[in-house]
Each structure stands twice: as structure tokens, then as C-alpha cells.
Amino acid sequence: MFDVKDLYQEVIVDHNRNPRNFGKLDPADKTLEGFNPLCGDRLTLYLNMDGEERISEVGFDGHGCAISIASASLMTENVKGKSVPEAEAIFNTFHTLLTDSSAALDLERVGKLAVLAGVRDYPSRVKCATLCWHTLKALLEGGGEPVSTE
């Protein structure tokens, strides 16, 4: 039996209350909206690139549950300064961590994102944690269509 406080760790509560890199980047090289029609979570991601390959600045705004806001906040901290392949690799590791319960919990590979590992015990909440990442992925891949979790 897991404690609900394993999900809502202090770091998550803090990032929800004071999200990092919250606010519009203006100007932004790339902007994309992501939303979860089931719960109404909606966020917009802003990126500035250093050339084609490196994320120099990232910001977001919008509204959602604590899991989605904290995840977006942690993501922006994590991917700032990363190359596109590095960011994609982090997402893949993070996604596997949350969706494949048989995967080894190699928390070191995802750094601070490990505080979201508890989400894997809540299948209905995985989309909350991955909304920002799906939006980032679509943005890096150049898609112009808003991202929906459904």
C-alpha cells in the first residue's frame, strides 16, 4: 500500500505552487499548445533555440493539476541547455519510467524528475505528467498542430 504523500512529495507541491520558468517567452522561436480534453489541463510551451540543435530557453504557461504543472516546471529546468537528442532521450527514459511497470526504476538517469516516479502507480494520472513532454516532443519535431492526450 502506497501513501498518497509518495505521490505528492514536497518537491511536487513546491513546483506546483511556484512553477519554474512559468510565463510566456516573447519572442519565442517555437510555440505550441498541449491539452488534455479529459481533465481540461491546458499548457503552452515556448522555446528558444541555439541554432537548430540546442534548447537555449524554455518557458510555459497554462493551468492544470499539480502533477501536470510540477512536471512541466521540472521539465523546463531539465531540458534547458540540452541538445534535441538529449532532450528526446530524457523523455524516452521518463516515459518508460511512468508507463512500463516492469521497467527497472533507474531513477538516476532522470535526475530530479525521479520525484514523479510515484505517478506510475496512478495510471489515470500518467497523462497529466507526460502532457508537457508530448508537447515538447511535437515542438522539437516541428509539428504545428496542438497536442492532445486523447
Binding site: 481533465c39 481540461g40 492544470g64 493539476c65 499539480a66 502533477i67
Partner: peptide, 23 residues
């Protein structure tokens, strides 16, 4: 104030309480 309905739904579920959160 300050608590999204989905988070409340998850926390209540831990105490066996089923509510709906959403639109």
C-alpha cells in the same frame, strides 16, 4: 483554492472516497 480537482480526486481515492473530477 490552490488544489486542482484531479489532485483532490486522487487524494480522496486514497481514503476510499470516490468522487468525480473534471468538466
Amino acid at each position: 483554492d490552490g488544489i486542482h480537482p484531479h489532485d483532490l480526486g486522487t487524494i480522496l481515492d486514497h481514503d476510499g472516497i470516490a468522487i468525480r473530477a473534471g468538466h
